[in-house]
Design a protein around this nucleic acid. Structure first.
Lengths: 179, 179
DNA sequence: TTGCTCCTCACGTCACGTGAGGTGGC
DNA sequence: TTGCTCCTCACGTCACGTGAGGTGGC
């Protein structure tokens, strides 16, 4: 149970053998031993624990090189730094992918509902709010409160509805003015 | 003006020369001529128009191979098919990136506001709704209307708030039952 | 001659996947 | 012997970027 071969370790973590071979080549995860006869890689419990941490960071999209630095070089600061950089990249990537999504939908002329690929937009949102009994005054008040309590989330939400940046600026301005 | 060299065409479209060399190798964009002495690639106005279309599809994240098929093989159906496949990939990618974002924020212990990387979550959302004067009954009604009018968008919105899939299922079920 | 642009290989990037050809242990 | 797992190269993927070493035109 302490020592396992490459295939066993791969199965334990839902990875392929070639992935572990690759990590070995990179120096990210060397097996701590080899079997006598077959020259097989043998991974200890400590190796498995290290792999567990590698998988964690991988699942967050941290590059392997960074993971190496986190596990070997650094303390908590190294990890936090890497995660913060990753957050920035993520934010930019999500914005870009959403832009692509919106452009494609426009290009396909999909104003009508389409299963699975449906997105929120301003008109549909307003329709839902009205149907649930909110008046114009309620919705105005809602923007004001949203802006006061969660300005960043307010911005994000308006972007999600596909509202242009000029209009967003206006909405947020009168929300603040009224608050 | 009709014929331009590789560097000129690259500059016109904000690309690098190596990109155009690569497109030539792929067969995606062959220059329609060569200069006599220097054996330089010469791109015609038609080539430039083709590149314009290539750039459009690239900006939507369509793979180069697909773009080749769209421009050469196919009619509108080919393009629409590729774009619809791209939409599916995009949706999956966005979900995955958001999951990473949420996990990292949790790991960093960022419950408090943090400039730029702020996200919506259920508690903050409910707080905003309450502050804008909605009662429990109003919010219940709101879910019911949302589910009735825009079920797909309702699902998407609940996911955006970071609610687990089990709870989403429950919310949508009682929304339908009450409607 | 100096600068600028052009040319053709050819290798690097990132995180693996996929053979090819061969060996060890039950 | 048959299966299964293991081994080590080495090349492919995707969309280019980056030299290296050389040429053409003003």
């Amino acid at each position: 149970m302490a020592e396992r071969t490459i295939g066993a370790l791969a199965r334990e973590h839902g990875l392929s053998r070639s992935t572990l071979l690759y990590y070995d080549r990179l120096g990210l995860l060397h097996p701590s031993g080899r079997s006598g006869g077959g020259n097989y890689r043998l991974y200890s419990a400590a190796d498995a624990a290290r792999l567990e941490r590698i998988c964690l960071y991988r699942s967050l999209g941290v590059p392997l090189q960074e993971i190496g630095r986190i596990l070997d070089g650094g303390g908590t600061a190294t990890a936090a730094g890497a995660l913060e950089r990753r957050l920035e990249t993520l934010a930019a990537q999500i914005v870009e992918l959403k832009r692509q999504q919106r452009s494609i939908l426009q290009l396909l002329g999909q104003v009508e509902l389409e299963e699975g690929t449906e997105m929120l937009n301003k008109d549909r949102w307003v329709a839902v709010m009205r149907a649930s009994g909110m008046t114009e005054q309620d919705m105005h008040n809602w923007h004001v409160q949203f802006e006061r309590m969660e300005p960043e989330a307010h911005q994000e939400f308006l972007e999600l509805l596909g509202i242009g940046s000029d209009e967003i600026t206006k909405i947020r301005e009168w929300s603040r003015a009224a608050g």
